Amino acid sequence: MQSIQQMIETVLNDVQPVVLAMVFQVKGSAYRKEGTWMLIQEDGARIGVISGGCLENDLHNRAIEMFNTGKVEIVHYDLSAEDDLGWGRGAGCNGVVSVFVRDIDNDFRHFLTLMHKQFLAMEPVLFIQSISEFDNYAFLNESKNYLDHWQGEIPFELDAFTPFQNKVGQKSKNDEDEMIYFQLIWPRPALYIIGAGVDARPLARLAVNVGYAVHLLDSRSALCNEIHFPTAVSFQVDDTEKLIDNISLSPLDSVVIMTHDFQLDAKLMHRLRDHQLLYLGILGSKKRTERLLGEEIPNWIHSPIGLSIGADGPEEIAVSIVAELIAVRRGGIS
């Protein structure tokens, strides 16, 4: 499932007509939360989901009537019905989902281009959209500059936020009747996997599936390549110590060490421990990590890596690591 950042890239790289469906309000419970995006393309492709399959067909039918029109509409779906006549067909979600549906015209496509440039610079943006004045939309960056089709004062500021924390909601504009939807959108998270062995392959695949941009680092070109990691963003083949020194790691980045080489891991940890990272994990037991560090494991290093789910084998271990990555990114654990 593509992230919002990947959806924006899809829009910018494909000129065919496309409609954006965006959940801006949920009352009660629902399958997806506020801030969920979905694209519907003219060729029939759907990118992303906003429900468990209850609403997508109706949205697709609406999109067919909207392609190349520049139209925008709001649709409210009541999923609380307990019979087969409701949208949930008896699923009992007990929620009302409000969806903002927009044909992406040239103006909004240009707006997404500007937003995409912010993501490439690894900067979050605060996207805002008037719920009543459909042509009123804008985004703020960390410098509190904005690029927009907005008229009047913007009632928001983008303060410092915890990396990747969600911030979605609505507020009134200067206590007026106009409601403003806002959504803090972060750049696509980067995951650097050091070690391109067989056990790294399912990790890379699963991480991409949940929105990570995966980068592989290894000294072995026969392993570190597109054949074994078809969904990775980049491959860096050289002495891994040199590679680490040449990467500009940021507090938004995650690193997983899985070289299976004790001496190399010790050197890598020495280079990485001074970097402020969102996540740093190393494969192996707690005792092994303590030996290579020469001390107790600091609480910001994840070892043993992954959530404790009794995982066995590369696929299950990859699941546990990705689960921990998500938990850290969402603020569930530190």
Rank of each mutant, 00 (worst) to 15 (best):
M1A: 15
S3Q: 03
Q5G: 10
M7D: 05
M7S: 09
I8T: 04
I8W: 05
I8N: 03
E9Y: 05
T10G: 07
V15I: 14
Q16G: 10
M22P: 00
V23P: 03
F24S: 04
Q25E: 14
V26Y: 02
G28C: 11
S29P: 07
A30Q: 04
K33S: 12
T36F: 09
T36L: 05
W37M: 12
M38Q: 10
I40P: 00
I40Y: 00
G44S: 06
I50R: 00
S51M: 12
S51H: 08
C54L: 10
D58V: 09
A63F: 04
T69I: 04
A81S: 15
D84W: 08
D84A: 14
G90V: 08
V96F: 02
F100Y: 15
D103A: 12
D105Y: 06
L112I: 11
M122V: 13
M122H: 11
S130K: 09
S130Q: 13
D135C: 08
K144V: 11
D148G: 12
G152D: 01
G152T: 09
E153Y: 10
P155F: 09
P155Y: 08
F156L: 09
E157Y: 14
L158G: 01
F161R: 13
P163L: 02
P163S: 02
K167V: 11
Q170A: 09
K173G: 03
D177A: 14
D177I: 14
L184G: 01
W186T: 00
P187D: 07
L191H: 07
V198G: 01
P202Q: 07
A207F: 05
V208T: 11
V208L: 00
N209D: 09
N209Q: 14
Y212W: 12
Y212G: 02
A213Q: 08
D218V: 05
R220C: 11
C224Q: 05
H228S: 12
P230D: 07
A232T: 08
D238Y: 13
D238A: 14
T240Q: 07
I244C: 11
S248Y: 13
V255L: 01
V256H: 01
T259G: 02
H260P: 08
Q263R: 12
A266P: 04
K267A: 11
M269P: 04
H270F: 06
H270N: 14
H270Q: 11
L272F: 06
R273Q: 15
Q276S: 13
L277R: 02
L277Y: 06
L280P: 00
G281D: 05
I282H: 00
L283T: 03
L283F: 04
G284Y: 03
R288P: 03
T289Q: 06
E290L: 05
R291H: 14
R291A: 15
R291G: 13
L293A: 06
E296Q: 15
N299L: 13
I301Q: 01
S303Q: 04
I305R: 05
A311Y: 05
A311N: 03
E316C: 03
I317L: 07
S320Q: 15
S320Y: 10
I321D: 04
V322T: 07
E324D: 13
R329G: 06
G331E: 10
G331C: 07
